[in-house]
Amino acid sequence: MRAYIFRRLAQSVLVVWAVTTIMFFMFRVMPADPTAILLERGLTDEARQALLEQWGLTGSLWDQYIAYLGNILTGDFGSSFLYRKPVWEVLTPLIINTLWIAVPGLLLGAALGAAIGTAVGWAKRGGKLERSGIFLATIIRGVPNFVIGIALLTIFSSTLGWFPSFGMGDPGETTGFARYMTLDFLHHLALPLIAVIIYFMPENLLLMRSGVVENRTEDYIELVRAKGVPQRRVAWHAARNSMLPLITWLFPALAETIAGIVVIEIVFSWPGVGRELVLAVTRQDYPLAQAAFFLLAVMIVIANLAADLIYGKLDPRVVYK
């Protein structure tokens, strides 16, 4: 077990290194000039050259790469070209903002999806619950998530006026953690959070349902029924076994889902890291984009490792070697 985790960690480091390297060269081969966004403010050629030097964009590509790797190892991702601040200073609050919608959104989406999926899978075959459950889940899964966001905005914000339509709340009144503990913040949080849940739930639901449908006819379910335990408990046995394929899918799917959260952040003007990432790429703000991508890569690698370890906990047949 320990040897397994160690080997997986070593692999993970390799993966992260590969991602950072690919990222580095991708940004460099893009035929664009990062100083361009500043040009309109009347930048002279000398000033531009000085800026490039300051940003470490002169010298051979190889020298740049070595310097870049060295900096990353010390945790230094440089300063944002646009904000003229260290990257982490820009990103940290954004990351926290994103986590506010991503973590509860994904957890609730997965949990609700699994719970409803079990109910739909356990329901009478061809009955109302099964048919409507599959129908709704398929429809929602087919709809692009910005449409979900816009629909939520149209209904609950424009028409009913229950929720604010953008942003995270009035800035500057309080600072630090206290800022997140206000009713105003939760009020702003509600719609984007619901959007993430609705976006993430259907696939969980459908996977869970097909698992339960498959498992409910297994011999061991018959024996559990014969034991005379409550129906709920019988369904739980089927659900517990259906979690195995769900977990296999769930964690790798988080990567894709994060891409979806970027869109939701944009629709709701939520000041998260995803929105900033898109902006950073369009602005050619290399350090910021690189740091954000680095972060995503690390998160996905950790998610995969977590999936493997959780899978071993859920399925006694899995042995780590």
């Binding site: 297994e218 011999d219 061991y220 018959e222 024996l223 559990v224 029924r225 014969a226 034991k227 005379g228 335990v229 409550p230 046995h237 517990r240 076994n241 195995l244 859920l314 399925d315 006694p316 047949r317």
Partner: peptide
């Protein structure tokens, strides 16, 4: 539920698959 296992229990046909694997 009151009859099952309390008054009447079952030894199943395919013991290979009739136990929950997890």
């Amino acid at each position: 539920r009151d009859v099952r296992w309390k008054r009447m229990s079952l030894i199943t046909q395919s013991a290979m698959n009739s136990l929950d694997p997890v």
